[in-house]
Computed example of a mutant assay.
Amino acid sequence: MLLAGATSDAGRAVAGALIAAGARVVATGRDAARLEPLAELGAEPEVCDVTDEQQVADLAARLRERGIRFDGVLPLVGGWRGGGGLAGQTDEDYRALEASLTALRHVSRAFDADLRASDAGRLAIVSSVSVARPLAGGANYAAVKAGAEAWTRAVAQGFAKAARDAGTPLRAAAVIFRVKALADHEAALASAVAGLFAQDAAELNDTVLTLP
């Protein structure tokens, strides 16, 4: 499993749950020092800025040279900026938030072939309940999350089409997790991600799951 941008509390929680379940986890981050706690959990750290397309391509090449193929990809680049009503939705804040969508685009494209070739390929993202009910003070945030959801649903359609064209059962699935505030749901997210691989891809693909 690739955890992209994994140095947050959520990244550590998910890594711990996956490693406890016996998974091999590669964790990326821009700062080697911040990856050390993940290495202590048993993850394989890789310094990579996943908002940089070339760095992601280089990462994919390095891992393939080592014989590593992924069954799962979870981008965790995120953060919150908002407030001030619609007038407070600055371009600076939007560009900072947009990094999460950029990271998703890069890693999903770079490792798409891995997920399609897997017997249980999984792409998952963490979105927000604000997509369903956006507020003026969080318009930038909700817009970026809505874009990420649209991208993930497009990945899901690609998985389904590839399986249909090949005449094979659907084995890969793209899933959206929505939360109210990720800081309150790290354990729930970790459990949900670890459980993705035991579920049927056809039932899971292109679904939105709201975490309690």
Rank of each mutant, 00 (worst) to 15 (best):
S128C: 06
R116Y: 10
A160R: 08
F197Y: 15
R34P: 12
P75K: 01
D112N: 14
P134I: 09
Q55I: 13
L182R: 00
A23N: 06
R105E: 14
T210V: 15
D93G: 10
L196D: 04
L18H: 04
A183I: 12
I68W: 05
A15P: 02
T168F: 11
A201F: 08
A194C: 07
F111H: 03
D119H: 10
R64N: 08
A103H: 01
S8H: 01
R12V: 00
G137I: 06
A181Y: 13
V131S: 07
G158M: 03
A172S: 15
A96L: 09
S118I: 07
W151A: 14
A148F: 06
L123Y: 05
F111N: 00
L63E: 10
L86F: 11
A146F: 09
G84P: 01
G147W: 07
L76C: 02
L86R: 09
E46H: 13
L182T: 00
A10Y: 00
Q89E: 08
L74C: 05
Q55P: 06
L63R: 13
A187G: 05
G195K: 06
K161R: 13
Y141L: 06
A60R: 02
E149W: 12
L76T: 02
T152E: 11
A120V: 10
I176T: 14
A117R: 04
E44I: 12
T210W: 08
G16H: 05
V179K: 02
T210N: 15
V50S: 01
A163G: 10
G137N: 05
D58N: 11
G158R: 01
F177C: 09
T207Q: 08
V25H: 02
F70T: 02
A181Q: 14
A57F: 07
R81M: 00
E36W: 03
A142C: 10
T51W: 03
L104F: 09
S191Q: 15
Q157V: 14
L204N: 02
A113M: 05
Y94A: 04
V179N: 01
P134Y: 07
G121M: 01
S128I: 04
P37Y: 09
T207E: 01
A23S: 12
L35R: 05
L101E: 02
E203T: 13
A136G: 07
G195Y: 08
A32P: 05
D184L: 15
G42Q: 10
A17I: 10
T90P: 00
V155Y: 04
V155Q: 11
L76H: 00
D9N: 14
V56A: 10
A202K: 15
A4S: 11
D91T: 14
G16Q: 04
A154K: 11
V26W: 06
A146I: 08
A33G: 07
S191A: 15
S8C: 00
V208P: 06
P45M: 09
D31L: 12
L97W: 00
R178D: 11
A150V: 14
L135E: 15
V47A: 13
G84Q: 03
L74G: 02
E40K: 15
L38I: 09
R24Y: 07
Q54Y: 11
S8I: 03
L86A: 12
R153K: 13
V155W: 05
P37C: 13
G121V: 02
V26I: 13
A39D: 13
T7L: 02
R62C: 06
A96R: 06
A60D: 01
E65H: 13
E186D: 12
A87C: 04
